[in-house]
Each structure stands twice: as C-alpha cells, then as structure tokens.
Amino acid sequence: MDWLERIATLRQWARNGARAPHKPLLLLYALARFQKDADGGLRYTAVEHDLQNLLTEYGPPNRTTPAYPFHHLVSDGVWEVRTDRGTGSPGTARRELRETGATGRLAPELRAALRREPDLLGRIARLLLDLHFPPSLHGELCEAVGLELEPAEVERLVPARRQRDPRMRELVLTAYEYQCAFCGYDGRIGAVPVGLEAAHVRWWAFGGPDDIDNGLCLCSLHHKLFDKGVLGVDGDHRILVSQRFVGRSPAAREHVIALAGRPLTGPQPGVRPVAAAHRDWHTRQVFHGEPRPAAAA
C-alpha cells in the first residue's frame, strides 16, 4: 500500500481555495503521539483541548471543532475509532464522542508500516506540512504537536505536484527594492540581504502561483505574523492588524500595532502590486478576526 499517496489525497472539504487542515492537524498530532507510544490511543476527552488549540492556532479563521476530523478521518483508511460500544465512531457530535469514551489511533496497517519503515513517519509528516502549510510555520507546528523530525528535504512524492519557481525570491525582493513592505527593514551583510523573505500571499500549497503579484518582500518577523493571520493587506494596499493580536510592550506596539492602516512600502513603479484575488484569499482564509482601526499619526 502506498501510504504517502493515500496521505496526499485525503478527502477534504474544498471550495474556492478554502483551507480545511483539520485532518492534517489531527494526523500530525497522532504521529507525534505514535513516536512516544506506538501502542497508545487518543481518548477524545483527553486530547480535545489540544486539538481545539491546534485548529484555533493553525486552522482557518472560521469556527471549527476537533470532533469533525476525529470522526471523518476514518473514511480515509488511516484512522480508526473505538468506543465503549465497540468499533466505529458515533459521529461528529462532541457530546457523543465524550460520553461513549471514543478513542482514536492510526489504522493498524499504518501502524505496522511505521514500525517496519523507520523513516516513513518523517516522510508522512513532511508531506503533510508541505501540502497544507507554508514553510514559515513548519518548525513551529512540529513543536506545537511534539513531533521530532530530522532535517531533510521534502521528497517529491506525487508526480502531479507543481514545482516551485526558484526565481521567485529574487524577483519579489527586487520588486520591493530589498525592503520589507510592512516596516521598511532593509538589512544586509555586505551585499547580501539578511532577514528578508519572499512571502506568498495566497499560499503555494493552496494554488498560489510563484508570481510577483502573489508575493511580498517581508522581514522574517512580519512574514511569520502574515502567515499566522496577525497581519494582512486591504483593498487599498494598506496593512491590516488583527484585533486578536495582544502586545503591551513598546516593541509590540511599534513593530505590529502601529502598522495598522499604514500603506505598503513598494513595489517599485511598473511592477504589479498584490492581485486582488490573492489578497482576498488571504483575508478570508488566513487573517484572524477584525482589523484594528488605523493607528493615529
């Protein structure tokens, strides 16, 4: 059985590029638990809080519940659920999962394959990360679920997957004249820029092209905050700051809160700005909550 292909083709709700990382997050969490206890199960009542936190932190802005992937992942053949009544999930109602003692774990065949092939767990985890999350969040997400992975290149496992354009970084940084579009940071060591990155507005994993009008030159801090939904861009190419962001220090106020309503720095004349379709996708699928009012001048 090709477990990598099965993982790459998980059944997910999808419409107009909507994010639905519920099953990938549950699988990453389950793989981390398997690393620590290959025979253990995940009782819903014991892991519900952890899974809800993961969905809140790394899922789409809309409300969601960990009961959804806990039940529906069974249909993909990689997960099983047992209750006090026997084999099978009682449904997606939290109350039913709690009251029946629902316990989930990786399917027996997958557990056996993970034992036979020591590197399979890491390959599955990296595939999940690559397909569903931007690179800026991979390390942080592994820490959040407790996964321990060896540094390695993501293997190209599915022939139909697109290849990234290695020129995008240089094209985007040049378009923004090697300055962070949010704060203007332009640090270099000699002639080499440091701490500047090409951020995809619409994530590459969700059909975002390697085009200049889907990119922003951002410093490392603002790239991470942009991918976490703290920051965004509105229709007038001004910076959005989520009301959910809390920072009381002078640094947080200066480097994040004060950005609200500020116009983007760049791109240079003659270069296409961020396309409305990509900007709108980010606002719907990544940006969290309502934007703060523009900071006072």
Rank of each mutant, 00 (worst) to 15 (best):
S89N: 01
S89L: 06
S89C: 14
S89T: 11
S89R: 04
P90L: 05
P90D: 04
G91F: 08
G91C: 11
A93S: 13
A93F: 11
A93G: 10
R94H: 05
R95D: 10
R95V: 04
L97R: 13
L97Q: 01
L97P: 09
L97D: 11
R98M: 10
R98S: 05
R98N: 14
E99P: 10
E99S: 12
E99R: 14
E99N: 13
T100E: 15
G101S: 15
A102H: 05
A102S: 09
A102R: 10
A102N: 12
A102Y: 09
T103R: 11
T103L: 13
L106T: 01
L106E: 01
L106Y: 05
L106V: 05
L106S: 06
A107R: 04
P108K: 14
P108W: 04
E109C: 05
L110Q: 07
R111N: 12
A113N: 09
L114W: 06
L114D: 07
L114P: 04
R115N: 02
R116Q: 15
R116Y: 03
E117F: 03
E117S: 07
P118L: 03
P118A: 15
D119P: 00
D119K: 14
D119A: 15
D119E: 13
D119Y: 10
L120K: 00
L120R: 01
L120G: 00
L120H: 01
L121D: 07
R123I: 03
R123P: 00
R123A: 03
A125G: 06
R126S: 08
L127N: 09
L127D: 07
L127E: 00
L128A: 08
L128H: 00
L128K: 04
L129V: 01
L129A: 12
L129Y: 04
L129Q: 01
D130R: 08
D130K: 07
D130N: 12
L131Q: 11
H132W: 02
H132F: 06
H132Q: 09
H132G: 00
F133G: 00
F133A: 14
F133V: 06
P134K: 07
P134C: 03
P134T: 12
P135T: 08
P135N: 15
S136V: 00
S136E: 15
L137M: 11
H138L: 03
H138A: 08
H138G: 02
H138Q: 09
G139T: 05
G139L: 10
G139D: 15
G139F: 06
G139A: 15
E140I: 06
E140D: 14
E140A: 13
L141V: 03
C142Q: 15
C142M: 10
E143Y: 03
E143K: 13
E143G: 14
A144W: 04
A144F: 01
A144L: 11
A144G: 03
V145C: 03
V145A: 02
V145L: 02
V145R: 06
V145S: 04
L147A: 09
L147R: 06
L147S: 11
L147N: 05
L147I: 10
E148T: 15
L149F: 05
E150D: 14
P151H: 12
A152H: 10
A152T: 12
E153Q: 09
V154M: 11
V154R: 15
E155D: 06
R156S: 11
L157E: 15
L157P: 00
L157T: 10
P159D: 08
P159T: 10
P159W: 02
P159G: 03
A160T: 08
A160W: 03
R161Q: 12
